[in-house]
């Protein structure tokens, strides 16, 4: 559930991101685009991982699929925005079909199954050379505007997507859908028994976790102009998204936004300062997060962190 303060904070944040082109350089604008894009991914993941409690690692499959559907459509002369909508629809349908099969699994099996989906997508895209270009990747026609305008345009696109998914999160968390998903997360059998159509609810959550990720993937492809299977279906990205949500606070509406922003900023700092060690440092951030911020930044209690650092509190569960 989102409070009035949360809403105001989010609005301020949107304004800050949207005004970066006015006063900051290209690098900052690029970072703002990445933050908005990852916020879309994290907020989407929140539906299945946060509200419903299903550990999905399939996000990057939706992202990559969206990128490829958009790219292929654009290469065949479909106008850019139509290609994005097409990607959204295809990814949504794919997620709904996949969800009705995959969501019969629980816990570890669901996690593994969702990782396998990413791998299968990557492998199929890599080997379907005639359509996807295989390992060589695909070039997408670039916008013939000035680089600054292109950056502003894609910043706005990602921001709009972010606002849409945020609003959806806020809506679902107040709606009976969110209430039902919350029940499923706590006790799925009992949820079934109080009259929740658990299969349907889970499939809806899974589809919501995919829909705008597909759009974001297609928009990303149009922005960067080139995609390949390794980048589009990277296992690293698939773990990043849940980590962002955990970092901010899973199951809350503002958490994914905070998590995505802090993670992208941290990542940028590590990339520019510790090129050889950035992966290890991200790993350390994850380990730190699990031990010291199990509820995410939103639920942080600094006293507890201090106590744990001093070793006063025993087992973190």
């Amino acid at each position: 559930m989102i409070t009035r303060t949360g809403l105001i904070l989010f609005a301020i944040w949107v304004v800050i991101l949207a005004t970066t082109p006015l006063h900051a350089d290209n690098y900052i604008v690029r970072t703002a685009i990445m933050i908005s894009m990852y916020s879309v991914l994290a907020l989407s993941w929140n539906f299945i991982g946060g509200f419903t409690g299903y550990p999905s690692f399939a996000t990057v499959a939706f992202f990559g699929l969206g990128a490829y559907v958009g790219a292929i459509a654009q290469r065949n002369g479909v106008p850019m925005v139509v290609a994005w909508m097409l990607a959204t629809i295809v990814v949504g349908a794919f997620a709904a079909a996949l969800g009705s099969i995959l969501l019969r699994l629980k816990g570890h099996y669901f996690a593994i199954g969702s990782i396998a989906v990413v791998e299968v997508c990557r492998l199929v895209i890599s080997s379907w050379r005639s359509v996807t270009g295989g390992g060589d990747g695909l070039n997408i026609p670039l916008l013939r505007w000035s680089p600054d305008d292109v950056a502003i345009f894609f910043l706005m696109v990602m921001l709009v997507l972010m606002i849409i998914v945020f609003a959806l999160n806020a809506f679902v968390s107040r709606h009976r859908l969110g209430f039902g998903l919350h029940c499923i997360r706590q006790n799925e059998d009992a949820a079934d028994m109080v009259g929740i159509n658990t299969t349907l609810y889970k499939v809806i959550a899974f589809t919501l976790s995919a829909l705008f990720v597909g759009t974001a993937g297609a928009a990303y492809a149009s922005w960067v102009g080139y995609i390949d299977p390794t980048d589009s279906f990277s296992i690293l990205m698939t773990v990043k998204v849940p980590v962002m949500v955990l970092l901010g606070g899973a199951g809350t509406v503002l958490g994914p936004v905070i998590g995505a922003a802090s993670f992208v900023v941290l990542e940028e700092i590590f990339w520019s300062n510790f090129l050889d060690w950035n992966r290890a440092i991200l790993g350390m951030v994850i380990v730190f997060l699990i031990f010291f911020l199990p509820g995410g930044l939103l639920r942080v209690s600094f006293r507890k962190v201090r106590d744990r650092l001093k070793g006063r509190e025993g087992v973190a569960t």
Binding site: F179, G180, C183, Q186, A190, A191, V194
Partner: peptide
């Protein structure tokens, strides 16, 4: 089989 984190009220409301 309660929903352990929900309030007692929300359990019944479900």
């Amino acid at each position: 089989q309660p929903f352990p984190e929900n309030s007692v009220l929300d359990n019944v409301a479900a």
